[in-house]
């Protein structure tokens, strides 16, 4: 049995770091030179996808996929997200385009993943960012869990995964 969790978000939001933090295998990365350093100043960025795994023994595995964050790779997003039990949307609140990206990614990915299977993880954020994010969601008529989350923190990521599991469990209990 293979469960799939997808990490989505713009370039530099911490998707690769998050997968590296919780994966039990050495993550498979597709890093290439970053040609958009004017947006996020890092030397390399994901151009294919990131992949990690959590082993559940006899019950199978949890596959962790990270999508490429640059919009020109959007053709890959529906392919990677297909069959996912949930998506974790990561955002770096210190980036100027954070809320613009948030709207863009929510709009783009709710076509492939049901809104009730989303978790929003805000990096470098405080309570006011959570309030703002919740307000944006309410404006769109959406309800999603929103948390402050450091992609380097296993504890923070465990909370996000716990939310996804609870959402998935609920589907069995209600359907």
């Amino acid at each position: 049995m293979l469960l799939k969790v997808v990490f989505i978000g713009p370039m530099g939001s911490g998707k690769s770091t998050a997968i590296q933090t919780i994966s039990e295998i050495k993550p498979v990365k597709t890093e290439a030179r970053n040609t958009e350093r004017f947006k996020v100043d890092k030397p390399t960025t994901t151009v294919g996808m990131d992949f990690g795994e959590i082993n559940l023994g006899e019950h199978g595995k949890v596959a962790l996929y990270g999508v490429p964050g640059q919009r020109r790779f959007d053709f890959m997003w529906p392919i990677i997200t297909k069959g996912a039990m949930g998506a974790i949307l990561l955002l770096d609140c210190s980036q100027d385009s954070c809320w613009e990206d948030f709207k863009y990614f929510v709009d783009a990915f709710t076509k492939f993943v049901d809104p009730s299977s989303f978790v929003v993880a805000l990096n470098r954020a405080d309570e006011s960012d959570i309030d703002h994010c919740n307000q944006l969601l309410m404006d769109e008529g959406l309800t999603m869990p929103v948390f402050c989350s450091d992609p380097r923190s296993e504890q923070d990521l465990t909370i996000l995964l716990h939310v996804l599991i609870s959402n998935a469990e609920l589907r069995f209990l209600l359907d």
């Binding site: 049995m1 559940l56 019950h59 039990m85 995964l161 599991i165």
Partner: peptide
């Protein structure tokens, strides 16, 4: 979703 409750419990 491609899962069962027992798999989700194992994940937890």
């Amino acid at each position: 979703i491609n899962a069962s409750l027992s798999v989700l419990q194992a994940f937890k």
